[in-house]
Computed example of a mutant assay.
Amino acid sequence: MPLLLLDLDNTLLDRDGPFRAWGERFLDTIGAPPTDIGWLLSVDADGLTDRWDVADAIRDRYRLTVPAIDLVEELHDGVAAQTRLDPLVACALRIVDSAGWVPVVVTNGAVRQQDAKIRSTGLDRYLADWVISEEAGVSKPNPRIFALAAQRVRMPLRHAWVIGDSPEADIGGASAARLPSVWLHRGRRWSDPRFAPTRTADGLIAAVAAALAG
Rank of each mutant, 00 (worst) to 15 (best):
L3Q: 07
I69G: 01
A206E: 15
A149K: 02
A68T: 15
T107I: 08
L204A: 00
M155V: 10
A177Q: 01
L6M: 02
A149I: 01
N142Q: 04
D86F: 00
T107F: 10
F26Y: 15
T198W: 09
D192H: 15
G31F: 05
D9P: 14
P141H: 00
Y62G: 03
T200V: 13
E168W: 05
D97L: 03
E74V: 00
T29Y: 04
T198D: 07
I30V: 06
W52A: 08
W39I: 07
S181K: 02
A81P: 14
V96P: 09
L75G: 01
L5W: 10
V208Y: 11
R63F: 01
L184V: 04
L12N: 06
R20A: 12
P167K: 06
A99P: 10
N108P: 10
R144N: 02
A147C: 04
A147M: 04
E134R: 04
A201D: 11
F146A: 01
I171V: 14
S133W: 05
R94A: 09
A110R: 15
S191P: 03
D165T: 02
G17T: 13
R154W: 07
E24H: 02
N10C: 07
L5S: 10
P167L: 11
L184E: 07
T200P: 10
G137I: 11
S98K: 10
E134K: 05
V102W: 06
E168Q: 11
A176K: 09
M155Q: 08
A80S: 15
R51Y: 04
T121H: 09
D28W: 11
A136C: 15
A55Q: 06
T65H: 00
I171P: 04
W190A: 11
F146E: 03
E73C: 02
R152G: 07
V208T: 13
W22F: 09
V102N: 13
I69R: 15
A211F: 06
A196S: 13
V89Y: 11
I58S: 12
G214E: 13
